[in-house]
Structures are given as C-alpha cells and as structure tokens.
C-alpha cells in the first residue's frame, strides 16, 4: 500500500464523498486530488521519490506537452514556467524542479471547463531541469527542459 493511499483511507472518515469515490473506484488518486494536499508528494526530496508519490514513475515522454521556460534565468526567485497539454482528456498537470530541495512545485487539476494550460512563477535554487507531468486517461506523460540559473531563488 502506498503512502498516498494510506492517507486517503485515513481521511475517509472526514474526507467525504470524493475520497470515497477515489477509494472505491480507482484505489489511487491519479484522477482526483480527493481534496487533500499530498504531504508525501510535496515533501519528497528527490525527483524519483516525487514521481513515485505522484503515481508518475511510469510516465512516458510526450511531444504533446508544450513546456515553456527560459533557457537562462537571471533571477532564480522568479522563473515563469507554463505548461500546455495537447493530450486529450488531460486532468492534471504537475510541475517539478529537479534540483530544488523539494522537487514538486505544484499540481493543477482541471475540472469542468478549465483548459490544460497553466502558467506560474517558480523559484529555482540552482540550474536545473524543470519537468512537466501530465495525467490523462489514467496515464502519465512528461517532458522536461533545462533552465540555467545565474542567481538562486532559495536559501540565502
């Protein structure tokens, strides 16, 4: 049993119908957040652990994800990153910065009407790959690119 699922089960008492649906239907929160901020995913300290906790360890490379980020960022504290998924039935986009203390920066779940097109400004502690993970139809897809950072955005 993975940690994410255990948390979901633990919160089932208070989590309401959505959590119940996830547990009974899919047994894993790949299609829905169940309204809960996933501590194990966000506190993973390396890319491999973060991907595993996201249920994205088997993510395959996809050319249908458009990841936009500067090749060189002068200020690591404010790096604009945007992700557009052209994969049908995209339900969630996660963005990870490989060399940050905690790689997972954020997950965006689209429900009715929201397009799989998100932009956010992130901190980069150092030069790093940024990875976009897209969840669509129960599968995970990814793409990544390197951002060179000349001044870090964490610590100090």
């Amino acid at each position: 049993m993975n940690v994410t699922r255990r948390n979901i089960l633990k919160h089932l008492g208070t989590g309401g119908a959505l959590a119940a649906l996830v547990v009974s239907g899919l047994m894993r929160p790949i299609a829905a957040f169940a309204g809960q901020w996933s501590k194990p995913s966000f506190e993973s300290k390396d890319m491999a652990a973060a991907m595993k906790n996201l249920d994205a360890a088997a993510a395959v490379d996809s050319k249908d994800i458009v990841l936009t980020a500067p090749a060189i960022a002068e200020n690591g504290a404010v790096v604009p990153v945007s992700v557009v998924s052209n994969i049908p039935n995209t339900t969630r986009i996660s963005i990870l910065v490989e060399k940050n203390p905690f790689p997972l920066a954020g997950s965006f779940e689209m429900t009715e009407g929201a397009l799989p097109d998100v932009g956010v400004r992130l901190k980069f502690s150092q030069t790093s790959n940024v990875r976009a993970v897209v969840f669509a139809g129960g599968k995970a897809y990814m793409t990544q690119k390197e951002v060179k950072v000349t001044a870090g955005g964490c610590g100090g």
Binding site: F108, E109, A114, L115, V120, L122
Partner: peptide, 21 residues
C-alpha cells in the same frame, strides 16, 4: 473549475495564469 496544490517553490507574490472555456 480548477484546484491547484502548491509547494514552497512557487514564487513570492505568486502570479497564476489559467484558461477556461
């Protein structure tokens, strides 16, 4: 229409861009 879960890596005074239909 959208739920985001975020971490400390999001910048100070964060700016978000979303699109909806």
């Amino acid at each position: 229409v959208m739920e985001s879960h975020l971490n400390t890596a999001v910048s100070t005074n964060p700016v978000f861009n979303f699109k909806i239909k």
